[in-house]
Design a protein around this nucleic acid. Structure first.
Lengths: 111, 111
DNA sequence: AAAGACTACTGTGGAAAGCAGAGTACTCCG
DNA sequence: CGGAGTACTCTGCTTTCCACAGTAGTCTTT
């Protein structure tokens, strides 16, 4: 099974969730996602997702110069993005439950 | 969030899991998946997935005439398919855990 | 018997999204 | 000065789901 196919559609939520905690720039979001278990994720996927979320109005953006390298393009979540995130979490939950049912994995929401 | 995007890559496992329980033909697999919660799944997706799994050697196939309509093309899982299914379940589990972690959903495998 | 509904499958073409690869550019270290 | 690490952009490829169209069989209803 190809993990990159599984990411389709889910990357949006993952990126929104990560940015919701704290504003982030592309390279940083990439590191945070890799640390969370998406270790094979491609950089272009993250940059592309951030751009897409910015273009559809879920994120705002600002540039900050850096002493340790090139400038950083920060992204921050806004109200629209928070709404999308909440809806997406519900969708994900229902979807994951259906899969677990078919695979007969008994998972429960613990908290 | 678009459910059809979430299906990418996962449909393979879902179909394998459904067919593993009992041999099935396309229209029937479609109904079983819809009953499991994938109520918006397109028929062409299921037929396409069955064809793909057959071509890559995970399923075998045989035709059975029917009294209630056109003939039925049954698919059965084989050893290769079972191996793919087991590997895919592991991949799914790891993937879903990563998502849950990022979304801060505390799920646990109960049994 | 014609019309419609349900069953059952095939094939084509389109769209979305992840990703590889190439390119740009800045900083720091040896 | 060259290499490594950081940081981003852009183009084009690939996979996969799906809408749509078409074929074809059975059964019910009018």
């Amino acid at each position: 099974m190809d993990v990159s196919q599984l990411l389709k559609g889910v990357l949006d939520v993952a990126v929104l969730a990560v940015v919701k905690d704290e504003d982030g720039y592309g390279y940083d979001v990439l590191r945070r996602l890799r640390a969370a278990g998406f270790d094979e994720i491609g950089d272009a996927s993250v940059y592309g997702t951030l751009r897409r979320l910015y273009l559809n109005g879920s994120l705002t953006s600002y540039v900050v110069p850096s002493d340790e390298g090139p400038h950083r393009k920060y992204y921050a979540i806004n109200d629209a993005g928070r709404t999308v995130l909440e809806e997406s979490i519900k969708t994900w939950r229902g979807f994951a439950d259906s899969i677990d049912q078919v695979l007969k994995l008994n998972r429960e929401v613990a908290a």
